[in-house]
């Protein structure tokens, strides 16, 4: 096998093919984020105001899942879940797509890590702000939507941003299950070329991930401006 010189043309020729796999990466990311944050809110609620036993269970779950590498969790869910469900209920999960298992694993991990973030954001909101809303006659839901969410969101935006980035990066692991996301596609092209374009294809994948991260960063810096109102003193 002879390694050729760096082949920029090969990258440019194949970039569209790899970008063609972008919807796979983005859809796994978005669905995992949605369910992960939902789960995170529920876990956070349990940690803040659940009964003692629930708080203990969630704490234990947090400690366990934090200690497991994402790729290991992915395999545990992919191979383990059908077995567990099968032996408990007799139901078969054969019909489930690989993406479903990926989303379950990523959402579980995100749910646990984001629950800590939501909890500290809630704790960061000053009691007086909530008391003011109470005295003005806000209902519980109005206090949540009008005071806690807007004020808490500003606190956690930097964390949300890095959570999105780490989920995007975690999706790169799905090629190990044979899903053709960005990395999977890049590797496939490299394989078809008898592995002589490995560097080129990984570089192409890196460029796409980097661009994706750039877009996420821009979106979140806009959001921070939007929710950071009143934080900075502007010259009168």
């Amino acid at each position: 096998m002879i390694k050729d010189a760096f082949d920029l043309k090969f990258i440019l020729d194949n970039l569209p093919k790899i970008i063609g796999a972008l919807p796979v990466t983005i859809s796994i990311t978005l669905i995992s984020l949605f369910f992960g944050w939902m789960l995170g809110l529920i876990f956070a609620f349990g940690k803040v105001s659940g009964p003692r036993w629930l708080r203990e269970v969630l704490k234990l779950l947090t400690d366990i899942l934090r200690g497991i590498p994402t790729v290991v969790l992915l395999y545990v869910v992919y191979f383990g879940l059908p077995q567990i469900v099968g032996s408990l209920t007799g139901a078969s999960l054969d019909g489930w797509s690989k993406q479903t298992f990926v989303v379950i694993a990523l959402a579980l991990e995100l749910g646990i890590s984001s629950s800590e973030m939501f909890r500290s954001a809630y704790n960061s909101i000053r009691k007086e702000q909530i008391e003011a809303a109470w005295a003005l006659g806000y209902t519980k839901i109005q206090r949540f939507l009008k005071v806690i969410v807007p004020q808490g969101l500003f606190v956690i935006l930097p964390n949300l941003s890095s959570a999105v980035l780490s989920i995007i990066q975690a999706t790169a692991l799905v090629y190990t299950l044979g899903i053709y996301d960005i990395l999977g596609k890049a590797r496939q092209i490299d394989t078809n070329e008898a592995h002589v374009k490995t560097f080129e294809m990984y570089l192409a994948a890196a460029l796409i991930y980097w661009a994706l991260a750039g877009v996420v960063t821009v979106i979140f810096s806009q959001l921070e401006k939007r929710f950071g109102r009143g934080r900075k003193v502007v010259a009168a």
Binding site: E128, Q129, E131, A132, L136, Y138, K146, F154, G230
Partner: peptide
């Protein structure tokens, strides 16, 4: 109505929004 020792205005809202919001939603 209540007036607090530490004012407790919503710090992410302008003066006008502070006085308007509760009127609108409550």
């Amino acid at each position: 109505g209540m007036v607090f020792q530490s004012y407790n205005l919503f710090h992410n809202k302008t003066v006008l929004e502070n006085v308007m919001e509760a009127q609108v939603i409550v």
